[in-house]
Computed example of a mutant assay.
Amino acid sequence: MNITKESVYHLIEKVRSGNPLVHNITNYVVMNNTANALLALGASPVMAHALEEVEDMATIAGALVVNVGTLDTKWVASMKKAMKKADQLEKPIVLDPVGAGATSFRNQVINELIQTSHPTVLRGNSSEIIAVYDHSKKTRGVDSSDPSDTALETAGLLNQNLDSVICISGAVDYIVDKGRIAEVHNGHELMAKVTGMGCTSTAIIGAFTAVHSDYFEATTAAMALMGVAGQLAAVSAKGPGTLQLHLLDKLHNITKEEFLDTVKLKINH
């Protein structure tokens, strides 16, 4: 189908009614944030990284989200095991290559994870996306000083090589898949002052991929919701602290009218 504002909102309703279980192997910094965001949206989060149970969790979940923010060797083994199981069961896998390009160990792990199972969706900022493709590119870690469109060419190459939907987050979010490019022109600069906003976007993508099998559309809808919710939350926020509170509220109670009035989408074929 063609992506419209209305079809995107329909997917938001689909997540709310479907209550998908999203299995997260994520980092210590954002566990609480991402779990609360998924709950507010209407999904069910489970944060499980024990090697002994990740296969069972991947089996019952609608999607697997893997986030390498706070890396640990034991967790890497769990990530690989869960990804193999999800791949075997044809469950969507969303990978967040947090800090790609910062260290050789991080680059090695990200590469090993991608080789274990090509992710359904790969989401990162421009620096991370470029570093995933070219490990020689050094970054500061999770922060990106480059505009998101600087990674568009690289995203196209990664999409071809991995057959993964590539999502570049930034002031403008870009979603790339098989010649289709979606642009989301929402959000607010205050969101960059709150840790884990990108990680939250990744978790939300997991919820949408669990209920909709066109993963380009699912990713676009997730990023649109995150951008609109952040933009509307910023209106009431007095700073980064209250932005987090209002963001959770808006993920929970956003109406069709305010979503359609606020969302700014552009789809290029």
Rank of each mutant, 00 (worst) to 15 (best):
V8D: 10
Q231T: 07
G101Q: 05
K264W: 03
L243I: 12
T103F: 08
K5W: 05
D214P: 01
I168S: 01
N125Y: 04
I3T: 04
T220A: 04
V176I: 07
R106S: 01
P45R: 11
V263K: 06
A37Y: 09
T4P: 08
H269P: 03
I130L: 13
V66R: 05
V121K: 03
A61P: 04
A61M: 11
T219R: 06
K14N: 12
V54G: 09
V235M: 14
N111T: 07
V132F: 01
L95D: 01
K178W: 06
A58Y: 04
K238E: 14
T200H: 12
K91N: 07
S164I: 00
S164P: 02
K264V: 07
K5N: 13
G179I: 04
K81C: 06
S44I: 13
A50N: 14
Y174Q: 01
E55T: 12
E183T: 02
A100Y: 02
N125V: 00
V165P: 04
M47G: 11
T202R: 05
I129T: 01
D96F: 01
A171C: 11
H188F: 08
G69F: 05
E189G: 04
T262E: 10
I175A: 03
V184P: 00
A221F: 02
I204Q: 04
H185S: 10
I129W: 00
I204V: 13
N161P: 01
M1V: 12
G18V: 11
V176M: 03
T220D: 05
H212T: 04
G187F: 05
K178H: 14
V165K: 05
S236D: 15
A155C: 02
S169D: 08
A151T: 00
L158E: 00
A234M: 09
K81W: 10
K91Y: 08
A48C: 13
H49F: 14
S201T: 10
T200N: 14
G124E: 02
K14W: 09
